[in-house]
């Protein structure tokens, strides 16, 4: 088969078809980059490892923050809540923006059209457009509303006691994100990565009814809008989503990440149940093998993922969340190498 570009590979897999080889891309923590290519930027690493895509998130590259407490590494995010920085490069919300309906009445949304928000995207487009998939993070409406806007507890409480509040929040945040998506697509985004956790290890965070009532409608709007521009979407959610996977797929998403193995999601089972409907993105464990396994264990696990889910295409082999700061650099390298070793189509694995 003709050698494909990274972009072609990713787009082909997202159509559930077979590229020349199993595609791979990842967001990689600075600490790991430092261990692989000291002094290099993420973009340099993407080129060095010949990753098929480059992915970044809105939280880190297009939201504004102001410093609140330098020593404690606390900042206020653009929505109005407080975030803190930990071992990871991305900020973690801990105090929500909205505490009461009154806060919401007077709320002024940040402006999604500000030019600076797209600076990084423009740089990436300039360097990689047409060659590697430019995968732009869009925090989904449930996660944004829950983590940054109302806080977990406030959000869950309102789902039961004050559903209208959730509807209002959803509508507000959707208006921002749709505009953000439009701007990103016009500037060259190839794929949208809709991140936001819907599940925990045992089961989804909310019941099927609540997922249907509050979570999937705004996701579907994001997906339909992106599709109206011909841009595919990958939905990311950790956790056990067996009880609601059909609802997620019904929104029309093109890819599903990461098929969380720690939550008992088996990628072979996922392939059998819905591998023809959606591209599977996952699921080499960044809880176990990538953190504490040997390189050989990582190689074997990567091979297993490809064996279970690679047949006929429709697989982007990735980690089970991200290459976070606890991943051993050598193990990540072993994973990339194994994808190249075992991921050539036609697969010769059984």
């Amino acid at each position: 088969m003709r050698k494909m570009s990274g972009l072609e590979r990713v787009l082909t897999a997202l159509k559930c078809k077979e590229p020349d080889r199993v595609p791979h891309f990842e967001r990689v923590a600075k600490r790991v980059i430092e261990g692989i290519l000291p002094g290099a930027s993420y973009e340099d690493l993407v080129e060095y490892l010949d990753l098929d895509g480059i992915r970044f998130i809105d939280r880190t590259h297009s939201w504004s923050y102001e410093v609140v407490d330098e020593a404690r590494r606390v900042k206020r995010d653009q929505w109005g809540g407080l975030v803190r920085y930990t071992t990871e490069d991305n900020p973690i919300p801990f105090e929500p923006a909205i505490r009461s309906e009154k806060d919401l009445d007077n709320y002024v949304l940040p402006d999604p059209d500000e030019e600076w928000r797209y600076e990084y995207l423009k740089q990436v487009v300039k360097r990689f457009k047409g060659e590697r998939a430019i995968v732009v993070g869009v925090t989904d409406i449930f996660a944004l509303g829950r983590e940054n806007f109302l806080g977990d507890v406030g959000y869950f409480r309102a789902m039961v006691k004050n559903p209208d509040l959730i509807d209002r929040v959803n509508e507000l945040l959707l208006s921002y994100q749709l505009r953000y998506i439009k701007n990103c697509i016009e500037l060259g985004a190839d794929v949208l990565w809709i991140n936001g956790d819907w599940a925990m290890t045992e089961k989804p965070m909310v019941s099927r009814q609540f997922a249907q009532r509050f979570l999937t409608p705004p996701l579907q709007k994001l997906v339909e809008y992106a599709h109206s521009w011909g841009v595919p979407c990958i939905k990311h959610t950790d956790g056990n989503i067996w009880p609601i996977y059909d609802l997620i797929l019904d929104t029309g998403v093109d890819g599903l990440h990461p098929i969380d193995p720690m939550a008992g999601m088996d990628i072979g089972e996922a392939k059998a149940k819905f591998g023809d409907r959606v591209c599977l993105c996952g699921n080499v464990s960044c809880a176990f093998s990538l953190v504490s396994g040997t390189e050989e264990e990582v190689r074997q696990e990567t091979k297993e993922v490809i064996r279970k889910a690679g047949r006929g295409g429709g697989l982007i082999c990735m980690s089970s969340n991200s290459i976070h700061s606890g991943v051993k650099p050598a193990n990540y390298l072993a994973m990339v190498k194994a994808i190249r070793e075992f991921g050539q189509y036609p697969l010769a694995l059984d």
Binding site: F156, R157, M159, V160, K203, P204, M205, V206, S207, F210
Partner: peptide, 13 residues
């Protein structure tokens, strides 16, 4: 599997 986090939170309240 009858209750999820929202139900748990309001019971906690």
């Amino acid at each position: 599997g009858e209750y999820y986090l929202p139900e748990l939170i309001v019971s906690g309240d």
